[in-house]
């Protein structure tokens, strides 16, 4: 196996890697939010806009999603994780493209840039979720969460699923850029079939079996089932989601690892 040994770059020292990821994180925050202060606003405003618009569209017909669950909050528990997932895929997919200049430095490896993006996305959307609920609670909605720990775990599993898909798409972007252009196109209809504005229970059984193939829908069902006291996640299967996450993550990261040298070659 051909390899290069450099004391600094190849020592596989965890300290160097942590240092690099930390520097990359600060840099990501800088490029994402530093230039226009709108960056912070937009991260919060995007899901809020979805919630408000969809509340108006659907709100008239179905006041409550379930006994004691207000529709805007029901929507938010679907939209924020979904937007987080979608952004995770598109942001990690663009990792190599966006960081190409930094691969000039031997310490900076593609995997580090991937991790930095993942961490930032998780932090941003966890904060957005919390901020949204605090804000909604403040204006009078009932935002009581039944089981925050499980909600967080499912949220993270969804993020890891996004990371796996994104890592794979990132390699695809380099190897077959035409095919990679399909990824955002595939993500768009996912918005309508992931159970953002409906609970899969209300879907007739003959269609439901098809929708239940979608792991994102399972994640949203599970999040709601554990967020709201009044909702039981009958159809959200934690094992199904875990299997998808595990498969995508290992396949995505493995592909990324195999292609890592090709990714840095300009």
């Amino acid at each position: 196996m051909p390899d290069v040994e450099h004391r600094e770059a190849r020592s596989a020292s965890l300290r160097v890697q942590l240092r690099v990821v930390h520097a990359l994180l600060l840099r990501e925050i800088n490029t994402r939010f530093g230039q226009y202060r709108f960056g912070y606003v937009w991260a919060v405003a995007e899901p809020i806009t979805h919630v408000v618009v969809l509340s108006f569209i659907f709100g008239i017909r179905s006041r409550t999603a379930a006994e004691g669950v207000e529709f805007p909050i029901f929507l938010a528990t679907g939209i924020i994780p979904f937007v987080a997932f979608r952004n995770m895929v598109t942001r990690t997919m663009a990792t190599v493209e966006a960081n190409r200049a930094l691969y000039t430095y031997p310490q900076v490896r593609p995997f580090d840039t991937l991790i930095a993006r993942f961490v930032l996305e998780v932090v941003i959307y966890s904060l957005v979720f919390v901020l949204f609920m605090v804000g909604a609670g403040w204006v009078g909605f009932d935002v009581a969460v039944q089981d925050p720990l499980v909600v967080l775990v499912v949220f993270l599993a969804l993020g890891l699923l996004g990371l796996g898909v994104g890592a794979l798409a990132c390699v695809l972007n380099d190897v077959l850029p035409d095919v990679a252009q399909m990824v955002p196109i595939i993500l768009r209809p996912l918005y309508f079939i992931s159970g953002i504005f409906f609970s899969v229970e209300v879907i007739p059984a003959e269609y439901r079996v098809w929708l239940l193939w979608n792991p994102v829908l399972h994640a949203l069902e599970l999040i709601r089932g554990h967020y709201f006291d009044a909702i039981e996640a009958h159809y959200g299967d934690p094992l199904y989601l875990a299997a998808w996450t595990f498969a995508c993550l290992s396949f995505g990261l493995l592909t990324f690892h195999v292609y890592r040298n090709r990714l840095v070659a300009s």
Partner: peptide
Amino acid sequence: GIDHPNAGTVRSTARISWPVGLTGG
């Protein structure tokens, strides 16, 4: 150490700068 050979090895224990080029990192 920012690109890798298809065959053979590059070895050094020295501290080596990144390639300082026109495009700059």
